[in-house]
């Protein structure tokens, strides 16, 4: 158990809500351990004490005892009452109704990546989602196609993203850090690679980050990157992807405005570096089979300039 606590887990909370759940969980673990100990203890006793010995006669044929049955029903009922109270209490704290508050983040699950928009700002990002520490945040959770599920264990409850519905979550992050999560409702071929990275940072850093993300893509481009930009705009890329400040404004795939500032790509599948990007652009269905990006047969040098362009989108 000692070693487990250093693993990122539901038992090492980083938000007020997850903290509440952990204390409830620990009560439950204690109660469950006691019950299990009683069952195993009495079983061991019975097994040792009453195993058949040679020459045993038929034992006394007793059939039951009302008082014992009463305890069997009464004690668990008491336990249920206690946990009923604890459950209701924790629920009300962890996930109260949203009460017409404006959400701080709107998260949308797409087939195999996450989109996060920050209402009131222009910022839209994918997969690596920054959140401020120390403030009670309201998350809205939607889905674009099938049911996904937003889950970052260290931050508390998970919530289904259901097409045609908006769900919400409250999160008050207490510790800055990077928290891993994953889609946990089966959503198709690449369900496994629909991971979440939440970067929790101080309010000031967060504001800075949002401000950066709000800006349109306006990098200083090298010659090859410029060629890449031209190639990008000639090809149908823009019908799915958005790069703010250019003509590309598709909403099907991830927003690429600040693509190069992400540490990983393809929802956590691989590190975001030019080599991986080249591999992906050459044959997406080989790198992440089932992803919605079709395979375009581009010549090698077109891909190279495209990589140069996208890598410049900081």
């Amino acid at each position: 158990m000692e070693k487990l606590s250093i693993l990122p887990s539901v038992l090492s909370p980083a938000s007020a809500q997850a903290d509440r759940i952990v204390s409830l969980t620990s009560y439950f673990i204690v109660a469950a351990a006691i019950v299990l100990a009683i069952v195993i203890g009495s079983l061991v006793y019975v097994v040792i004490r009453f195993r058949a010995k040679p020459g045993d006669k038929e034992p006394a044929q007793f059939t039951g005892n009302k008082v014992i049955e009463g305890f069997m029903i009464g004690v668990p009922t008491l336990l249920v009452v206690v946990f009923m109270y604890l459950t209701l209490d924790t629920m009300a704290d962890v996930l109260p109704p949203e009460e017409d508050t404006r959400p701080d983040v709107v998260i949308t699950g797409h087939r195999y990546w996450w989109e996060a928009a920050y209402p009131g700002t222009e910022a839209i990002v994918a997969n690596e989602i920054h959140l401020p520490v120390g403030r009670r945040l309201l998350l809205h959770i939607n889905a674009a196609d099938v049911i996904h599920d937003w889950w970052v264990p260290a931050l508390g409850a998970k919530m289904d993203a259901i097409p045609g519905r908006t769900n919400h979550l409250w999160v008050t992050i207490t510790k800055p850090g990077v928290y891993d999560g994953a889609c946990s409702e089966f959503c198709g071929t690449q369900h496994a690679w629909m991971r979440i990275k939440v970067v929790a940072q101080s309010e000031a850093d967060f504001r800075q980050w949002v401000a950066r993300k709000e800006k349109a893509a306006n990098p200083v481009l090298s010659a090859s990157a410029q060629a890449g930009a031209a190639f990008f705009s000639r090809q149908p890329c823009g019908s799915c992807h958005r790069i703010r400040g250019t003509a590309a404004n598709g909403a099907v795939g991830p927003d690429l405005t600040h693509f190069a500032s992400r540490k990983t790509m393809l929802a956590g599948l691989m590190e975001n570096n030019p080599d991986n990007l080249r591999q992906w652009l050459t044959d997406p269905q080989h790198v992440k089979p089932g992803a919605l990006m079709p395979r375009f047969s581009y010549p090698k040098d077109s891909i190279n300039v495209l990589v140069a362009y996208l890598s410049a989108l900081k």
């Binding site: 509440r20 759940i21 439950f28 469950a32 019950v35 299990l36 079983l43 629920m91 508390g156 409702e185």
Partner: peptide, 26 residues
């Protein structure tokens, strides 16, 4: 008796909604 008690107890943790929020679908 042992295995089912373990299964039953872990089952109850899904009735406790906040624990379910963390552990369902894992």
């Amino acid at each position: 008796l042992v295995e089912f008690t373990i299964g039953g107890l872990s089952g109850i943790s899904f009735a406790i909604v906040p624990i379910d929020w963390q552990l369902t679908d894992t």
